[in-house]
Write a protein that binds this DNA or RNA. Structure first.
Lengths: 312, 312
DNA sequence: GCCATCATATTGTCCTGGACAAAGCGTTAA
DNA sequence: TTAACGCTTTGTCCAGGACAATATGATGGC
């Protein structure tokens, strides 16, 4: 694969520090050291001071592994066999491709030199399909396609960055355009700590806006105490949380229970995202939104249950 | 101060784990442990398993300390004397206030329940002053005011989040509206790894857009190798880097040297941000932008030096 | 055949205490 | 005033042990 990595500078040719690997892969220093001890991988070099130096190749493998783990694979499976197998496992994995041909167009456009056509294409699809369909169908398909492309070595990191940036602009711009004149319900949108997931948040925000509800987004990574504080201060009707698929179910559950207990009774709590999708029973007092397409109906329900009152 | 923190849930009343503190303060686990060993602060409780449990109060102090360190204060100064002094040091610090009365309006608006007026106010100022002045004068003043408010305990975290979110929306929306039809120069905008600074990037992007130059923003934290790859792939004329004030000068310098060496000769390298402002001599082959207001003139210079050619 | 319960294996994160390079600071020499 | 140098401060790394939380697999009851 003639990816970006090719252009390594002499200075860093040998490899990178454990801290850099932590940043680039999302795997903690402790985890990296323990893997090395237990599974024999990664097996970094050592510099003059005995500190670990990870060759680019191993970092690449680690990124791959992290990505697979985020899809539910377990480390033991990925790390015990000779690492060479990784490539094959990848080749075997994208079996789901094929259903997603619709999104294939993104790849060549991303790889083209000019971004304007891409920007235009996104804008056009948004205009043609409408914000709602764009968010529910187009963007998820694109996300999936990009993810697969990344794993297949087809898409460079900066191209993924670029994609995120462009979609983000489209969505923010749409939300902005839709305005939002103090309509009810007042919604507070965020994720709990340990969650990234910016694009997902933005997608939800756009959907809400498309349905006349304007969320106050706190961005990602809000501590629970802050969520509660904000909800109290802004007299929020609904607190909506988004959990990505990678987020451990138990933690989501705990966060929801804790939050439910701390929020005023009249404030509803909605939760959604891949992290909750499959999970059987929900938490008492929490409304689970199984898919993006459920947002609009759920909102309609809320309106039915809360007929418009005069004063605030 | 009747801040957000008040609403602590029973479950977490005792305190939080070291990982949570790392996330919330940005101070590494190692650093937290070493401070405890060396300075006696923080002094977390221990749970049944001997693991550190940080009371909210100490976390609050740590956040304060981090903020002060980001302004250049050194840990020894902050941690050695009885921590109680912190409050006083804070009270003494905002001496710079007063020059910034212009931005005071943001505080009450942020604290008001409704966000719509705030959104409207920002939009109006943007419309009245123009994008350029908004970015060069208004936003920096607001940022400063918010930072001070945060340190003084006047502004809660979620209010700061909210502010960032709203300004971000305004800027992105403006950039989006301005369009950008494949104009030269082709600019690549980003920060190197270890840098956050999203809002700063966006401000630069907006300024460029206001001057008819459309940057391709890679977002923050792009590894150098990726920057080079992206620059090559997109046939970039100018790579623009932003360094925040907290970023150590030496690292900026190294990054710039490395990048300069790796980029094609014809690609210019511009660098700006608080991290470079004071520093005397610049790096060979790097154009240092001392202030936001210099962006427009520098761009004009570029145009003068690169008269429009026909083909692409 | 399907679901609950338990035992077992896996896995991430935390701990201690030592070490050391890099960055900061102040002083002296040019 | 700038440059070079030594001392101090400070962040990050290391090793190896420990253990709770989670996933997996087996067993038994409906």
């Amino acid at each position: 694969m003639d990816n970006t990595q090719a252009a390594a500078t002499p200075a860093q040719a040998a490899g990178v520090s454990i801290a850099a690997v932590e940043r680039d892969t999302g795997l903690g220093k402790d985890t990296l050291r323990v893997w090395e001890r237990r599974y024999g991988f990664p097996r970094p070099l050592r510099d003059a001071f005995g500190e670990r130096v990870y060759p680019a190749e191993q970092v690449e493998h680690l990124r791959l592994i992290k990505r697979l783990m985020d899809q539910g694979q377990r480390p033991g499976t990925l790390l015990r066999p000779p690492i060479a197998e990784l490539g094959e496992r990848l080749a075997a994995n994208p079996a789901k491709v094929g259903a997603d041909d619709t999104a294939d167009w993104i790849v060549p456009m991303l790889k083209a030199r000019d971004i304007d056509p891409l920007r235009a294409e996104l804008a056009q699809r948004l205009a043609r399909d409408g914000l709602e369909r764009f968010v529910i169908e187009t963007v998820p398909a694109l996300n999936r396609r990009i993810g697969e492309g990344w794993m297949a070595g087809e898409i460079a990191i900066f191209e993924e960055h670029l994609y995120t940036e462009l979609v983000q602009n489209q969505l923010r711009s749409s939300i902005h355009t839709l305005g939002g004149r103090g309509t009810r319900p007042q919604i507070l949108l965020t994720t709990v700590k340990d969650e990234e997931h910016i694009l997902g948040l933005l997608m939800v925000e756009a959907l809400l806006a498309a349905n006349g509800a304007f969320a106050l987004s706190l961005g990602a990574q809000t501590p629970i105490a802050d969520i509660v504080g904000a909800a109290r201060a802004t007299n929020t009707d609904i607190v909506a949380l988004s959990f990505s698929g990678a987020y451990p179910w138990r933690k989501s559950r705990d966060a929801l229970i804790e939050l439910r207990a701390a929020l005023p009774e009249r404030t509803e709590l909605w939760a959604g995202g891949g992290g909750l999708a499959g999970r059987g029973r929900s938490v008492a007092g929490v409304r689970v939104i199984g898919a993006l397409s459920e947002i609009a109906p759920t909102l309609a329900e809320w309106h039915a249950a809360h007929p418009r009152r005069s004063g605030h």
